[in-house]
Computed example of a mutant assay.
Amino acid sequence: MPSNIKEQVHQHYGNKIRVRTCGVIIQDGKILMLKHDGIGKKDYFWNVPGGGLEKGESLISGLKREFQEETGLKIKVKKLLYLNQYIVSPLHAIEYYFEVEKITGNAELGHDPEEILVLSQLSWFSRSDFENLDKDCKPNFLLKYLNFD
């Protein structure tokens, strides 16, 4: 077994194309983000909740499942906001970003069902907080497509 989280991530998710479904929730002018360790140019990446699909699972069903696993929130999936390719070798993901709305629950850091402990932090970011994150450690396109007000 690889010794560090980055090696584990590369071994588990690397050298294949992964389809991810992601949910963007804005509440009280803040966006919900999760810190993913072992990913990106600086070994961490802030992104909205979401993840890979299980065989036979739709984007919508997968997003509801992932959101509840990672944050404890039950959500309603609304419109598709953006289609993104995340390519930082050896990782390659096709990501569908949806606007979501909370139905029930309180946001708390959950887990990934995989054996790798990638999620390390949950935080709500204001627009200025988001802008102040390192540009290599977040999906920069979110500012362009979202209104935090």
Results as ranks from 00 to 15, higher is better:
Ser3Thr: 06
Ser3Lys: 08
Ile5Lys: 09
Lys6Tyr: 11
His10Arg: 12
Gln11Ser: 00
His12Gln: 03
Gly14Asp: 01
Ile17Met: 10
Arg18Ala: 10
Arg20Met: 07
Arg20Gly: 09
Thr21Ala: 06
Thr21Asp: 01
Cys22Phe: 08
Gly23Lys: 11
Ile26Glu: 04
Lys35Leu: 02
His36Tyr: 08
Asp37His: 11
Ile39Trp: 05
Lys42Ile: 04
Tyr44Val: 08
Phe45Gln: 13
Trp46Met: 14
Pro49His: 05
Gly52Leu: 04
Gly52Tyr: 01
Glu54Thr: 06
Glu57Ile: 06
Leu59Lys: 09
Ser61His: 02
Gly62Asp: 10
Leu63Thr: 01
Lys64Met: 15
Glu66His: 13
Gln68Gly: 12
Glu70Pro: 15
Leu73Tyr: 14
Lys76Met: 03
Lys76Thr: 01
Lys79Asp: 05
Leu81His: 07
Tyr82Asn: 13
Leu83Met: 09
Tyr86Glu: 00
Val88His: 03
Ala93Asn: 07
Glu95Ile: 04
Tyr97Gly: 04
Phe98Leu: 12
Val100Lys: 15
Val100Pro: 14
Glu101Cys: 07
Glu101Asp: 07
Lys102Ser: 10
Ile103Asp: 15
Gly105Pro: 11
Ala107Gln: 05
Ala107Asp: 02
Glu108Lys: 15
Glu114Met: 01
Glu114Lys: 00
Ile116Glu: 00
Gln121Leu: 01
Glu131Ile: 14
Asp134Lys: 13
Asp136Tyr: 09
Asp136Thr: 12
Phe141Lys: 11
Leu143Gly: 13
Tyr145His: 11
Asn147Trp: 12
Phe148Glu: 06
